[in-house]
């Protein structure tokens, strides 16, 4: 049964996710800087940024502006609490259903979108519109691949899927479903808002989209939310495709590799227009995803 310890462990996972992603994000800034022949910031620069924002005096556009931020951070913390980190570190054993991550994350997104629209800035609404449109684009291929994974492993529990891949005669789904892996990397880039798909941030075009009116503590909280969101998405990827983690060191290595690789890919790309994002995802990734489902589910050609 669920005890207070589980809840504390869940909160610990959320905090761990925040610290981990903020550090990895900082290190990645350094990696990118080296790529561009720069020295780059300190590895803990992202912490400095967030605490600075929390220390500033912000402005508020009314109650929904604040309420949305609280709802956003709350929803994301709640989602992170369900996230398994390794095989043993999991707050709510058996209830880490995949759909919880997809839909509970949406509460956070909705809160942020609500708050952004509540600021009364048209650029924020445009940003939200683009974010939702992007979501419509990348989720469908990704969900089809996840359907295949759930169908093959017979469970929709994220830790269960990881355990399925760790069995001695099973491969990681990254190898078992090669087409699906390609599709899901692309979808992951869409989820993280990385370069070709960062249309909804677009600082030079719509002044950082949903974030246009935030400053100070609200922006700081949204940064925290953003870091935890990335943690959720990347570790979901690690568990679904890279066989989860037996211990924390393996998790850290896999997490760091996934995030860094995606970040490096994104740094050599330009930015799509929003309709290009939609047509891109509905062309090849969707086609590949359908092909993958057919050959994996109906024909049973899986490299296990």
């Amino acid at each position: 049964m669920i005890s207070i310890l589980n809840v504390l462990l869940g909160l610990g996972v959320a905090l761990f996710g925040f610290v981990l992603q903020t550090s990895v994000g900082g290190i990645n800034r350094k990696v990118v800087a080296r790529l561009q022949k720069r020295r780059g910031p300190k590895w803990y620069q992202e912490f400095l940024d967030i605490f600075k924002l929390l220390s500033k005096r912000a402005i508020s556009h009314g109650w929904v502006f604040d309420f949305g931020v609280i709802m956003a951070l709350g929803g994301i913390i709640a989602t992170a609490m369900f996230m398994p980190v390794t095989n043993n570190i999991i707050a709510f054993e058996g209830y880490d259903n995949f759909f919880i991550f997809v839909y509970l994350i949406a509460v956070g997104m909705l809160g942020m979108a609500m708050s952004a629209s509540g600021s009364g800035n048209p650029l924020a609404s445009i940003g939200v519109m683009r974010a939702l449109t992007t979501m419509l684009a990348y989720e469908i291929p990704f969900m089809l691949i996840v359907l295949t994974i759930i169908k093959l492993s017979g469970t929709s529990s994220v830790s269960g899927i990881a355990a399925f891949q760790q069995m001695s005669n099973h491969n990681w789904f990254a190898i078992a479903l090669p087409l699906g892996f390609i599709v899901s990397v692309l979808s992951l880039m869409g989820m993280l808002g990385k370069k070709p798909f960062e249309t909804y941030i677009a600082p030079a075009e719509i002044a950082s989209g949903p974030m246009v009116e935030y400053g100070g503590k609200q922006l700081g909280m949204l940064f925290i939310m953003h870091e935890i969101t990335i943690f959720i998405e990347v570790s979901l990827f690690v568990h679904l495709f890279l066989g989860g983690a037996e211990n924390i060191a393996i998790f850290l290595v896999k997490y760091f590799l996934v995030y860094t690789v995606v970040n490096l890919i994104s740094n050599v790309n330009g930015r799509f227009k929003i309709d290009q994002v939609v047509t891109f995802f509905y062309k090849w990734p969707l086609f590949l995803a359908v092909v993958q489902v057919i050959i994996a589910v109906y024909l049973g050609w899986v490299i296990l």
Binding site: G62, I77, A78, V107, N121
Partner: peptide
């Protein structure tokens, strides 16, 4: 858990400096 998450977020929000109210047109 959603309630707890919102509670945590609310605590973070409330201990920090109070924000300045501005109008919707001041954007």
């Amino acid at each position: 858990m959603f309630g707890i998450g919102v509670g945590v977020a609310f605590v973070i929000f409330i201990v920090l400096k109070k924000s300045k109210k501005v109008g919707l047109m001041d954007t």
